[in-house]
């Protein structure tokens, strides 16, 4: 069953081929030289790192003291405190310099879970798991990077 063909004009075809070629060049250039900042033309760097066999694997979390007297790990996702773990990990340095950035974690939790115990003190903690010959050796070691007394 043929219902005809639609061909492109010379200009339309040339323009489309040019756009495609420029796009490919941008993508390759981004992968070779750019950073995530160049999205969508940045490098596909998720899980692209070479991790040595003796690497110290770090994992960042936020521990909270609540007004009910308990200590909990803040659920770092949209449904929990409204912030993803990756966002916190990407901004660790900034939070260390300015712990007040943690205030919005408490605010986010309060907004979504007003009926549950609220956070009074937050700690940004880095857990380190040591690899030996590519295998996990022992439990992680925690280290407190920043502490924030929550403003009410």
């Amino acid at each position: 069953m043929t219902e005809g063909e639609l061909k492109l004009g010379r200009v339309g075809k040339a323009a489309r081929v040019a756009v495609a070629v420029v796009g490919i060049v941008l993508l390759v250039n981004g992968s070779a030289r750019a950073s995530d900042d160049a999205w969508p033309f940045g490098p596909m760097s998720q899980y692209a790192g070479s991790v040595p066999d003796d690497y110290a694997v770090t994992f960042t979390r936020i521990s909270a003291e609540t007004d009910a007297g308990t200590t909990v790990d803040v659920p770092l996702n949209i449904e929990g405190a409204g912030v993803a773990r990756a966002e916190i990990e990407a901004r660790t340095g900034e939070i260390e310099k300015d712990p007040s950035l943690l205030q919005q974690v408490a605010d986010g939790w309060k907004k979504k879970h007003a009926d549950q115990p609220q956070y009074v003190k937050l700690e940004l903690i880095r857990d380190t798991t040591q690899l030996v010959k590519g295998r996990v050796e022992g439990p992680p070691t925690p280290e407190v990077l920043a502490t924030w007394q929550v403003r009410r």
């Binding site: 790192g49 991790v51 066999d53 690497y55 694997v57 994992f59 690899l131 590519g134 295998r135 996990v136």
Partner: peptide, 10 residues
């Protein structure tokens, strides 16, 4: 490398 081990630990 140990990249998948790293990913799973995290």
């Amino acid at each position: 490398s140990a990249v998948l081990t790293w990913a799973i630990v995290r």
